[in-house]
Nucleic acid binder design. Structure first.
Length: 470
RNA sequence: CGGGCUGUGGCGCAGCUUGGUCAGCGCACCUGCUUUGGGAGCAGGGGGUCGCCGGUUCAAAUCCGGCCAGCCCGACCA
C-alpha cells in the first residue's frame, strides 16, 4: 500500500524536515520560555553518548573535570573589554534574589572564562602549578533572538575547557591538540562527520581571544555548521585577573591561556549531516541503540527468541534493544526505528524462526539479509562497522562534491548558493569578507591549501573557506 | 527595534467575506473486535473559556476597538 512519507522531504522544505524529525524521532520539544528546549530521552541519550566519548578524550588530553557556579558577578564580565562587548547583548542578568534587589546584579553564565580565571589566579603561584588543565560540563545561557532547537537556543549544554600555560607556544599547541585529538577525532570517527579545520578570521573570532580555531561541518542543505571551537586567549584574561607564576629564575610572569568547547549543537549537526527522508541516521559508534531486535508478531516462540537474541547481542558488547510491542503493527515499529536512525534492525518472525534465522536490515541502503541465529552477533558487529564507514564515506563524498575552488568573489557567491567555496585569502581579504557578509556568506575558516591547520592565522597563502551557515 | 502574517482540543487546520443546529475535520488519545513480514481496519468514545478585555446585536469563533502572544524577513552567536 502506497504511503506518503512520514517526514516532509528535505528538498521540499529542509527546516520543516528538521522540525518533523525532532517530533517524530522524539528528540526534543520547545520549552515554555522562548528559545529554551526540552530534550527528550532519546535526544538526551544521543547527547550522553557524545558526552561520554568527548569526556574520555578530554581526560586523555590531561584535563580534569570541575564545576564552577552558574551565577557570575556582573563586574567579572566587565573586566575584559572585548569579552564584555561580545557578550553583553545576549546576557541574562538577575537583579533580584530572596525578594530583594541585589547589591550587584549577577549574570547567568554565557561562558565561564571570567569566573574560572578568578580562581586560576588563586591556584596558580608557581611554574610547578602549570599547565593547569580544567574542563567543566555545564549549561550556559545566551539570549537568542532566533532560536532553533539544538542549533541555537537561549540555554544549551556544553563542555568548556580552560587552561593556563607557561608559554604562548605551549598554549597554542594545547589548543591545537584539543582541536585535533579530541574534537576532530570524535567528530570524524564517532559522529562520522568530516570537518574542515582552520582559524577564524578576526571578524569571526571569539570575544577576548587572540585566535580561534574551529571545526566546520557541512549539512545536507549545503550550509555550514560550526561544530566546535578552540581558542588561544593570549594573556588578556591573565592580565585582567592577575594570573601570574614564578618561573625557575624567580621572575613573575602572566600565564598563557586557552579555552575550547563543543555543545549540544552537535546533536543538530548529527541530524542535519546524515538524516534522510526516512529519518535520522545515527552512526553505530554513537548510537544509543545499535540494534533493535524486533519481534514481527506474537507467534509461537518468537518473543522468547528475540529476548534471547537481544541478550546475546548485549553480551557481545552491542547496544541492543528488544522490541516486543507486538500489539503495535510491524510496519509502524519498523518505521519508528528508522525515524530514530537505529543502524541495524534484527527482525524475527515465525517464518524466520522456522528457518532458524533472523532478518537483518541496515538503516542505510535498507538491504535485508537472512542470518542464522547463532551467527547474528558476529554479523551485526561487522555490519555496524560497515555502516559506520559507509556513513562517513557518504558524508565526505557529499561534502566534497559541494566544495569548489574560486578565484573571485562572484565565484564564491555562486558556489555558496549550494555549498562551500575555497578562495585564496589574499584575494578576498577583510573587505571582500565584509562584502560577502552582506549576502549572508561568511568565511568559515582559514586553512592551508592542503586543508591542514596553519601555525598561525596570519600565515601566508591561506585559503578562505566560505559558505552560508547556521 | 523596522516590515509581512497568525492566534480555534496534544499537533495540523477548516469555518469568518454573507452574524443564528459551526463548534467541525485529519492525526494523536481511550474502549472493543478483527489484525500484525513495511506507518492496520471497522465500530464506539473522551477532550476545546474559539489568545485576552471591552463594544455592537435578540444573538459573536464570525463585525468593531484595544491589549497580549507567537511566526516569518532585516543587525549578533556554540
Amino acid at each position: 500500500m502506497a504511503k506518503q512519507g512520514v517526514l516532509t522531504p528535505q528538498n521540499e522544505d529542509f527546516p520543516r524536515w528538521y522540525q518533523d524529525i525532532l517530533n517524530k524521532a522524539e528528540l526534543a520539544d520547545n520549552g515554555p520560555v522562548r528559545g529554551t528546549m526540552v530534550i527528550r530521552p532519546y535526544g538526551y541519550a544521543l547527547w550522553e553518548r557524545m558526552q561520554a566519548e568527548v569526556d574520555q578524550r578530554i581526560k586523555a588530553a590531561g584535563a580534569d573535570n570541575a564545576y564552577f557556579p552558574l551565577f557570575i558577578p556582573e563586574s567579572y564580565l566587565n573586566r575584559e573589554s572585548d569579552h564584555v562587548e561580545g557578550f553583553s547583548p545576549e546576557l541574562a542578568v538577575v537583579t533580584q534574589g530572596g525578594g530583594r534587589e541585589l547589591a550587584e546584579p549577577v549574570v547567568v553564565r554565557p561562558t565561564s572564562e571570567t569566573i574560572i580565571n578568578a580562581y586560576f589566579s588563586k591556584w596558580v603561584q608557581s611554574h610547578r602549578d602549570l599547565p593547569l588543565l580544567i574542563n567543566q560540563w555545564a549549561n550556559v545561557v545566551r539570549w537568542e533572538m532566533r532560536p532553533r532547537i539544538f542549533l541555537r537556543t537561549t540555554e544549551f549544554l556544553w563542555q568548556e575547557g580552560h587552561t593556563a600555560h607557561a608559554t604562548r607556544q605551549e598554549a597554542r599547541d594545547y589548543a591545537a591538540q584539543i582541536l585535533h585529538d579530541v574534537y576532530r577525532d570524535f567528530m570524524e570517527s564517532v559522529l562520522a562527520i568530516p570537518v574542515l579545520i582552520g582559524y577564524k578570521t578576526e571578524a569571526e573570532r571569539f570575544p577576548g581571544a587572540i585566535n580561534s580555531m574551529c571545526l566546520e561541518g557541512m549539512m545536507r542543505d549545503g550550509k555550514a555548521l560550526q561544530m566546535g571551537t578552540s581558542h588561544e586567549l593570549g594573556q588578556s584574561f591573565a592580565t585582567m585577573f592577575d594570573i601570574t607564576y614564578l618561573d625557575g629564575e624567580g621572575n613573575q610572569s602572566h600565564v598563557w591561556q586557552t579555552s575550547w568547547g563543543v555543545s549540544s549543537r552537535m546533536v543538530g549537526g548529527l541530524i542535519m549531516a546524515h538524516g534522510d527522508d526516512r529519518g535520522l541516521v545515527v552512526p553505530p559508534r554513537l548510537a544509543p541503540i545499535q540494534a533493535a531486535v524486533v519481534a514481527v508478531r506474537d507467534a509461537e516462540g518468537v518473543v522468547d527468541a528475540c529476548r534471547r537474541l537481544a541478550e546475546e547481542l548485549g553480551a557481545a558488547g552491542i547496544r541492543a534493544k528488544l522490541d516486543d510491542r507486538t500489539g503495535t503493527g510491524f510496519g509502524r515499529r519498523a518505521t519508528d526505528w528508522e525515524l530514530k536512525g537505529v543502524p541495524v534492525r534484527v527482525e524475527i518472525g515465525p517464518r524466520d524462526l522456522e528457518q532458524g534465522q533472523a532478518t537483518l536490515v541496515s538503516r542505510i541502503g535498507g538491504e535485508k539479509e537472512a542470518v542464522r541465529l547463532s551467527e547474528v552477533p558476529t554479523r551485526v558487529e561487522s555490519l555496524l562497522d560497515d555502516i559506520q564507514k559507509r556513513i562517513y564515506d557518504d558524508a565526505l563524498a557529499w561534502r566534497d562534491s559541494l566544495i569548489s575552488e574560486a578565484t573571485t568573489a562572484d565565484e564564491v557567491r555562486e558556489a555558496a548558493a549550494t555549498g562551500f567555496a575555497r578562495i585564496p585569502w589574499a584575494k578576498l581579504g577583510p573587505e571582500g569578507e565584509a562584502a560577502l557578509a552582506e549576502e549572508a556568506i561568511t568565511v568559515r575558516c582559514l586553512q592551508r591549501p592542503d586543508g591542514s591547520l596553519p601555525q598561525d592565522s596570519d600565515e601566508s597563502d591561506l585559503v578562505a573557506v566560505c559558505g552560508r551557515s547556521y
